[in-house]
């Protein structure tokens, strides 16, 4: 996951937004029924399963749609069949099987009674019709995944294989063992927006200011300000500029390494309550031994050099002790 704060060009005070790209390789075990199906695909064969009414389901279903009983009678079907319905994709989306205009089709393979949904590389909507015969075009290196069928083609399909999305990753398995898992990478792209209140705060940070807002109902000062006070359900309004000093309300010493960690343990992650704020936020306390950090300790922001500032709280590299006397426990107990 990554997000970078970039301003949209629409209006100077429009809320901030930034691309947010998320991705994950979903790894799924296949079980006995889908396992049979994907292992056959690896051998360029297509298997179905016979239901209680005698119909052959392709792809096989684990449980009978009518009786809900487990199904076990597998049967091979052809890798060619008939188009039962189709729709046209003029501009393929990311990761769709055919990366030039193509048709989605419901295809009844010879020997099957249900339809398989897949892509037909037809070139043009004039080259596909219901009732048309189509045949599977197999991937060069089948791995045991629905995408081993690269696509289907008809009599008037364009010559040469269609450009395709990258093949799925192959799950590790011992030599000679059947495919037991399938991996499907999922990548999604979003435009992530900050709220108007958060945007005020982030723009303030870019100028080295700490901008909070007060809830009009409970009068608590929130930093960051919020689209809704979690206690009262109304947006925070009156703006308050806070100093960059405050106290540690509570903290923990991080001793455990983890992926992406930027500091070498041990170090201190602490809740910092800025002077004048009612809600603490999480930040780092450096500039002293981890063992010296205390609840109630007075701290001040250590800002990064001005030329590195942007719309982020990372402009403050960490907080460090001021050396002033600790705040008495009673003064922050209600923030714990």
């Amino acid at each position: 996951m990554n997000a970078a704060a970039t301003e949209t060009s629409e209006a100077p005070e429009a809320p901030l937004s930034a691309p947010l790209n998320v991705g994950f390789d979903y790894t799924r075990s296949v079980g006995p029924v889908l396992g049979r199906f994907v292992n056959a695909l690896r051998e360029r064969r297509i298997v179905g399963v016979r239901g209680s009414d005698g119909r052959v389901h392709v792809p096989p279903v684990e449980y009978d749609p009518l009786t809900a009983q487990p199904l076990t009678e597998f049967t091979d079907v052809a890798d060619e069949g008939t188009v039962v319905s189709w729709s046209w994709v003029a501009e393929p989306l990311d990761a769709q099987p055919v990366q030039r205009p193509f048709a989605w089709a419901l295809i009844r393979l010879d020997g099957a009674d249900t339809c398989l949904l897949h892509a037909v590389d037809a070139g043009s909507p004039d080259n596909i019709h219901t009732g048309m015969r189509v045949r599977a075009r197999w991937a060069d290196e089948p791995v045991g995944h629905i995408r081993d069928i690269a696509c289907f083609t008809g009599p008037d399909s364009p010559a040469g294989p269609a450009p395709t999305a990258p093949p799925p990753p192959v799950a590790e398995r011992a030599e000679g063992e059947p495919v037991s898992t399938v991996i499907t990478p999922i990548h999604l792209r979003y435009l992530h927006s900050a709220s108007p209140e958060e945007s005020r705060y982030l723009r303030g940070l870019a100028e080295g200011k700490l901008i909070a807002q007060r809830c009009p109902a409970c009068h608590k000062v929130y930093i960051p300000p919020r689209g809704a006070c979690p206690t009262d359900g109304v947006p925070t309004t009156d703006e308050v500029e806070l100093p960059d000093t405050g106290i540690v309300t509570t903290f923990c010493i991080v001793n455990v390494p983890f992926l992406g960690q930027r500091l070498t343990p041990p170090y201190v992650a602490a809740y910092i309550l800025l002077d004048g704020a009612d809600i603490p936020f999480l930040h780092l306390v450096l500039g002293c031994e981890a063992s010296e950090v205390r609840m109630g300790m007075r701290v001040r922001a250590a800002w990064k050099p001005r030329e590195q500032w942007s719309t982020t709280l990372e402009n403050i590299g960490h907080f460090e002790p001021t050396g002033e006397p600790d705040a008495p426990y009673e003064s922050y107990a209600h923030h714990l």
Binding site: V30, W86, V89, A95, Q96, W104, I146, P168
Partner: peptide
């Protein structure tokens, strides 16, 4: 297993 990896879009399916 057999559909989402192909990314059939909602409009294509409705078609």
């Amino acid at each position: 297993y057999v559909l989402a990896p192909l990314w059939p879009d909602s409009i294509g399916i409705a078609g």
